[in-house]
C-alpha cells in the first residue's frame, strides 16, 4: 500500500538528528514537525525570519506579526529568535541549516529538481526554494511517486523549469525511499506491501537495487 502524506512525513522524521536545524517546506514537509521524536532537540527555521517555530497558536494568541514562510500564524518555542531576511538566508547560504525538506514536481537521478514553475500556467515565483536547494548540505524531497495523472515524477531529465541542479540527496515518496548516488537512483526502502517491480515501473529512470530491499519501519 502506498503511504499517506502523514506516513511520508513520519518516515522523513527518522532522518532527523539531535541538534539539527531544519527548514521544512510547504505541504507534506510541514507535517514532519508532528513526528519529531520526543526528547530530540530539533530547531525549525522559517526563512521569513524565525528560528524555533512552535505549534499553531490558540485562537486567543493569534498574532499577525508572527507567521511562518507559508504565511500561516504560528508561535515560537523557548529559545527562539527573530531576525531579518538577509540574516535568515545567511543561515541557509552559509550552510548552517542541517536539513531541508521540500516538495517537487520532478526530481532526476542526478539530483536536479523542478518545483516552482509551470510555464503559461503557474508562475508564482520561486520564493526561497532556489536558495535552499543551492545551499543546504542535505536535501530531502517529500513527494508522491507519480503525479495525479499517474506520470512518474522521478526521471532522467526534468521537463519543467529547474529549481536547482545536483542538489537532492534523498527522496521519500509514498512508495519508496530512494537515495541519489553518483550512479543514479538507489532504492533503500519500499513502502509496506509495495513491490520492487511496482517502484521500478513507476520510475522513469534506472534504479540501482542491491540485495533484498526492506520495508519502511513506520
Amino acid at each position: 500500500m502506498s503511504l499517506t502524506k502523514y506516513d511520508i512525513a513520519k518516515r522523513i522524521a527518522q532522518e532527523l538528528k539531535d541538534g539539527y536545524y531544519v527548514n521544512l517546506g510547504i505541504g507534506i514537509p510541514t507535517l514532519v514537525a508532528n513526528y519529531i521524536p520526543a526528547g530530540m532537540d530539533v530547531t525549525l527555521h522559517s526563512e521569513n525570519g524565525l528560528l524555533g517555530i512552535g505549534p499553531f497558536p490558540k485562537k486567543e494568541n493569534v498574532d499577525p506579526d508572527l507567521i511562518n514562510a507559508g504565511k500561516q500564524t504560528v508561535t515560537y518555542t523557548e529559545g527562539g529568535s527573530f531576525f531579518d531576511s538577509s540574516l535568515s538566508f545567511a543561515m541557509i547560504r552559509g550552510g548552517h541549516i542541517n536539513l531541508t525538506v521540500l516538495g517537487a514536481f520532478e526530481v532526476t537521478d542526478k539530483g536536479d529538481i523542478s518545483s516552482w514553475k509551470i510555464p503559461g500556467k503557474m508562475v508564482k515565483g520561486m520564493g526561497g526554494a532556489m536558495d535552499l536547494v543551492a545551499a543546504a548540505e542535505n536535501i530531502i524531497v517529500a513527494t508522491t511517486h507519480t503525479d495525479k495523472n499517474g506520470n512518474p515524477k522521478l526521471k532522467k531529465e526534468c521537463s519543467l523549469p529547474l529549481t536547482g541542479v545536483n542538489c537532492v540527496k534523498k527522496i521519500v515518496s509514498d512508495l519508496a525511499v530512494i537515495e541519489i548516488t553518483e550512479k543514479g537512483f538507489k532504492l533503500l526502502e519500499r513502502a509496506p506491501g509495495v513491490s520492487v517491480d511496482e517502484i521500478k515501473e513507476k520510475t522513469d529512470a534506472p534504479i540501482i537495487i542491491e540485495g533484498d530491499i526492506p520495508e519502511m519501519n513506520l
Partner: peptide, 25 residues
C-alpha cells in the same frame, strides 16, 4: 530567489555593487 533578493538589497544599502551566490545556478 528570496535570499538573493534580500542580499541584493542588503548589499545595495551596504555599498557592495555585486557578489556571488549559488542560488539559481
Amino acid at each position: 530567489p528570496q535570499g538573493t533578493l534580500a542580499e541584493r538589497i542588503r548589499a545595495g544599502g551596504a555599498g557592495i555593487p555585486a557578489f556571488y551566490v549559488p542560488a539559481g545556478y
